[in-house]
Design a protein around this nucleic acid. Structure first.
Lengths: 209, 209
DNA sequence: CGGTAAGTGGAAGAAAACTTCAACTTGGAA
DNA sequence: TTCCAAGTTGAAGTTTTCTTCCACTTACCG
């Protein structure tokens, strides 16, 4: 697609890698909003270098997380091939949250699309139909109640993620309990009320502001 | 407890009320972090007046929300008197979230204690034993699985609240679906694993940062 | 009414983060 | 070895919000 217009000078490439590694570490523990200055200082470079290499935070996020996002897309694809649709859904949600548990930044990315723009947008566009297919199959198989929608699955994701966010620093496994609650809830709730609007699923992953 | 040391001058009292009303409105729609300047401007006063009346944001929050908090405590008390413990829990959680649905600020308050300090701390201290009692009763009655703890109820609260936060602007009723999922989840999940630490429930309501 | 303590307004200083830029350094081609 | 395009640095300007402060206004007591 986009070849390296001209390869970076060796020292520049070294700095770039150093900044990426450092940024990844900091964002894993502190989230996506780490100040550029903190990253630069931790990497031992000046801020100018940050800005030259990653003029928009977007550029940094893309470089940092695109492979991780691809991994998650891979999980969705694997899940969609499960014979047991419900098992596939549970497996996928658990994989996704394990990834988010390892990196706070990645969690913010996967659950609030606006921060990542195109990258995550595309991932969701890719995964949503797969999830929708699994849900339809699970409903048909009687594994999920009639009326269950992809938005409910997204809601479950957001729900467990919120517990993860709130507890990661003092109870790093608590989210698994929340996951058990969310999954048992999906299976057993009465979801026959009017289904959420189609567009809800998209907007649910966008933090507005 | 604390009588008005000396009553405010009439114009000052009028301004105070005006600021409170304005702050309540703004915080209901935008959350607790509305800049003081925005409140002052919307109320038509200067910032100096804000700071004279409410030197700490804490003071403003206390004045704004203490009666609402008392209402929620009242809900907990009412719920604890239900014969049907599970019905009491569901009723309480729904009341609490209805309150949060009406005011974004109140939701932030009820689900991240650190912003409100003593006020919310006391409310939680008061409500937690009531909820714990209900849960114990519900477990005994076979309405909740063995191993269910107050922390699980708190988690359910956080979970539904996160959906409320994410969707209030475009799907103001979606949280009810999340509530159905959370409640069905509590009843049906396997919660027999090692129970969360006693202190988890407190820290779950504190946003760390 | 007049004096004054109480109250008010908004400019100005401070803190945190973002962003730009001009002077300086360096890798590597010739 | 030389040279210069590429790269780096950190200080300085901006923005946003918080917070203080003092000159000005006003309620109300006597």
């Amino acid at each position: 697609m986009s070849e390296p217009a001209s390869p970076l000078r060796r020292d520049a490439e070294r700095n770039r890698q150093l900044l990426l590694r450092t940024a990844y570490e900091l964002m894993a523990s502190q989230g996506l909003d780490v100040p550029y200055e903190d990253i630069a200082r931790a990497a031992g470079t000046g801020m100018g270098t940050m800005y030259r290499r990653f003029p928009q935070r977007q550029d940094l996020l893309d470089a940092l997380f695109s492979e991780h996002i691809d991994t998650v897309i891979g999980f969705a694809e694997q899940a969609s091939r499960y014979d047991d649709a419900w098992a596939g859904l549970g497996w996928f949600l658990e994989r996704q949250l394990e990834v988010e548990a390892r990196s706070r930044g990645l969690g913010e990315l996967l659950r609030s699309r606006n921060q990542a723009g195109a990258l995550v947008q595309r991932a969701h566009d890719r995964m949503t139909p797969l999830v929708a297919g699994l849900i339809a199959r699970a409903v048909r198989a009687g594994q999920l109640p009639a009326g269950a929608t992809p938005a409910d699955f997204a809601a479950a994701h957001v729900m467990v993620g919120s517990v993860l966010d709130a507890s990661r620093d003092f109870a790093p496994q608590l989210w698994r309990r929340a996951l058990a609650i969310a999954l048992a809830g999906l299976r057993n709730a009465d979801l026959s009320g009017d289904p959420p609007d189609e567009t809800v699923i998209d907007r649910l992953y966008n933090d507005q502001k």
